[in-house]
């Protein structure tokens, strides 16, 4: 595999190495899809499995995802207009009343690293803004993040708004105080307990749709 070095730089979390490695592969004429799928996405699959197996801690997962994203930024101009398509689109944001974004950003990077287009709405996002973004970008999945117990009810309001608007999209939730029970209670389509879990969930939901 000609993209071994890229693959390894993600596994070893060498943020400063990856951009020149990706650029070198582009310059060498390696197919963009190979760099993307065998290098960046392939490595993040392994990272996700390592995290799931308890081998990695959250800070290590974060730096691996940032390494991938750095490589992806080099590749991005080549993706525009290419025949490589996203696996789908995900709109993501931290719900209204909540300014915490570490977890949301990590999920965003991991989802992007899995081959999805991500529309990140940022923090303190009103339900109406999620709805507006869903209408504009037509995602398969909307991800709602919260850290504060006091902002969790905003997830419910968001889901109710989508139900009233009859938008056909899967809504998933996550964040430290959220759990499967809460997700079920408010009518979410899924709950991701961590970033790789969110990626697995999104892949499953997109396959189902």
């Amino acid at each position: 595999m000609s993209v071994d070095a890229i693959f390894q730089s993600i596994l070893e979390r060498k943020r400063s190495d990856i951009a020149p490695l990706v650029q070198a592969e582009i310059d060498a004429g390696t197919e963009i899809s190979v760099i993307l799928n065998d290098g960046l996405i392939g490595a993040m699959d392994v990272v996700g499995r390592q995290f799931g197996d308890g081998l990695l801690f959250v800070p290590e997962l974060l730096v691996a995802a940032e390494t991938m994203k750095t490589g992806l930024e080099v590749l991005r101009p080549k993706l525009v207009g290419s025949e490589i398509t996203n696996r789908g689109t995900v709109v993501i944001g931290t719900v209204q009343g909540d300014l915490h974004d570490i977890g949301k950003n990590l999920v965003s990077m991991m989802v992007e690293g899995a081959g999805f287009a991500v529309v990140d709405l940022g923090v303190d996002v009103a339900p109406e803004r999620f709805l507006e973004a869903a209408r504009e970008h037509r995602p398969q999945v909307v991800g709602l993040s919260a850290l504060l117990t006091t902002s969790m009810p905003a997830m419910r309001r968001c889901i109710e708004l989508f139900e009233d608007a009859e938008i056909d999209v899967k809504i998933i939730v996550g964040g430290a105080p959220v759990n499967q029970e809460y997700a079920d209670e408010i009518g979410a389509d899924g709950y991701g307990s961590d970033a790789p879990g969110a990626v697995r969930l999104i892949k499953r939901l997109v396959t189902e749709t």
């Binding site: 995290f51 308890g54 990695l56 801690f57 959250v58 977890g103 307990s193 961590d194």
Partner: peptide
């Protein structure tokens, strides 16, 4: 304290 594997509080 950050849970090292979930980030939970």
């Amino acid at each position: 304290m950050t849970h090292p594997r979930t980030g939970a509080y």
